[in-house]
């Protein structure tokens, strides 16, 4: 395809970068302790925590950088950081 003047070559979304490979520690979500307050989803800088039908958080490990903010701020200590096994 010819590229005209002023065009961006191969434009795309940042989702092409799977930043999950940066992770050293991995957040593990303990659903029994979760109160569905939504704090982890609100503060995640990656925006990579979703929600299932039951209101429980669902992380997208393709993008999670393992910063640990969710585990640190979770009011019910329902997230634990575990060393990533590669």
């Amino acid at each position: 395809m010819a590229i005209g003047t002023g065009c961006t070559a191969r434009p795309g979304k940042s989702r092409n970068n799977k930043t999950g490979s940066w992770r050293v520690f991995r957040p593990e979500f303990i659903n029994e302790k979760c109160t569905s307050c939504g704090m982890c989803r609100i503060i995640c800088p990656e925006g990579c925590i979703g929600e299932n039908e039951e209101g429980l958080p669902v992380p997208d490990y393709d993008y999670c950088k393992g910063c640990g903010l969710c585990a640190e701020e979770c009011p019910s200590e329902a997230i634990e950081m575990k060393k990533e096994e590669k």
């Binding site: 979304k13 940042s14 989702r15 092409n16 970068n17 799977k18 930043t19 940066w22 939504g38 989803r41 609100i42 503060i43 995640c44 800088p45 990656e46 925006g47 990579c48 979703g50 929600e51 997208d60 393709d62 993008y63 950088k65 393992g66 910063c67 640990g68 903010l69």
Partner: peptide
């Protein structure tokens, strides 16, 4: 939350725990 994720998407290259990304 869903709209927020689409309007500012994952895969950006901020440091882990970046407040500006938040």
């Amino acid at each position: 939350d869903e709209a927020a994720c689409v309007l500012f998407d994952s895969g950006h290259r901020a440091c882990g725990g970046c407040a500006a990304a938040m």
